Computed example of a mutant assay.
Amino acid sequence: MCRWLAYSGSPVPLDDLLYKPANSLVMQGKHARMGVETTNGDGFGVGWYGATPIPGVFHSTEPVWHDRNLRELAEHASASRVFAHIRATTGTAVQQTNCHPFRHGRWLWMHNGALSDFLKVKRDLAMAVEPGLYPEIEGSTDSELFFYLALTFGLEQDPRAAVSEAVGFIEDTGRRHGIEHPIQMTVATTDGDTTWAFRYSSEGKSRSLFHSTDVATLRAQYPENPLLHGLSDESRLVVSEPLGDLRGAWVEVPDAMCVVVHEGEEELHPFAPSSS
């Protein structure tokens, strides 16, 4: 599958997120601890918000540990909201347009998991995408099509409801095709102001997802840790797996839940699919 992180808070060098942690995303490219695959080497992407409302994105088909351009970018760029994703393909091509995060306007989206038997349901799902949005789909992944279904169902107005409707539609479509467990997902999406992250699967055995605990508490517990002193109290991470082993630093997001991060506060809400 894949691994990802979503950061928000005080501006931080990308290097601090991608390379420096003991279990950094670059390290997870070769040695993921909690993923289906140990290796996630089928490309990567970084999305970040800077001086304009539209986020920048950088995609590469190189293995994340091998890309010199990412190393250079990470040493010199800082941002206060970052999405980063390393890919292990579930069958679609290794190409830049299939690398996450995907972008639409000011929105970013990334996904770990799969739509089961995607080729069986691909046409039906694609036909449900709003016609004005359909030409923007550039790649061939189930993840990008999932994004555009969520946009069709109103992601920009109500992300929780839109993802719920998109998942409900995917499950209904899959079961019409005889697929027992149509979707496996952790998803993160943001408009540059708030992050929504979802953990759900049709079989009730979802991929791992964690959020960080309060930075002020961690700073008091670990006064000698220099990274913690460079972060504001509002800084938060949502990750596929913990970036390090600091005791108390990570809280597992329960299955079938949505975590909403806004201005340094987390809210957890039950998540369930709904029919449109």
Rank of each mutant, 00 (worst) to 15 (best):
E136N: 11
D245M: 06
H104L: 03
E203H: 10
S80A: 12
A166M: 11
S240L: 00
N69D: 13
A6Q: 01
W4E: 01
N40V: 00
I179M: 10
M185Y: 04
G41C: 08
A77C: 12
G230N: 07
N112S: 02
L246C: 02
P63Y: 10
D172R: 11
T38A: 15
G113C: 03
V121Q: 07
R3N: 04
L209R: 09
A22N: 02
F102M: 11
W250V: 01
M257E: 05
R81C: 07
A162V: 13
L18D: 01
E263G: 00
V94D: 08
G230E: 07
C99S: 11
F58V: 04
V12I: 14
A79V: 01
P11M: 12
V12S: 08
G29V: 04
L151N: 02
R219W: 08
D42S: 05
V187K: 02
R247E: 15
G35R: 06
L5T: 00
N225F: 09
D233F: 04
P101I: 05
T173P: 10
G248L: 08
D16R: 06
L18N: 00
F102V: 09
T89K: 06
N225I: 10
G91D: 11
P182N: 11
F58P: 00
D233A: 12
L108P: 05
L246N: 01
R236M: 11
Q96G: 02
Y134N: 04
H229S: 04
Y134S: 13
D233Y: 04
V64I: 15
P254N: 10
H229V: 02
Y134Q: 12
V260F: 03
S143A: 14
L73Y: 13
G139C: 14
V260P: 01
R176F: 09
D67H: 04
N40G: 02
A84N: 05
L73S: 00
A74G: 05
V46P: 01
P223E: 09
S206L: 08
K30P: 00
C258V: 15
F118E: 03
R87A: 03
I137A: 03
S275F: 10
L25A: 06
L145T: 03
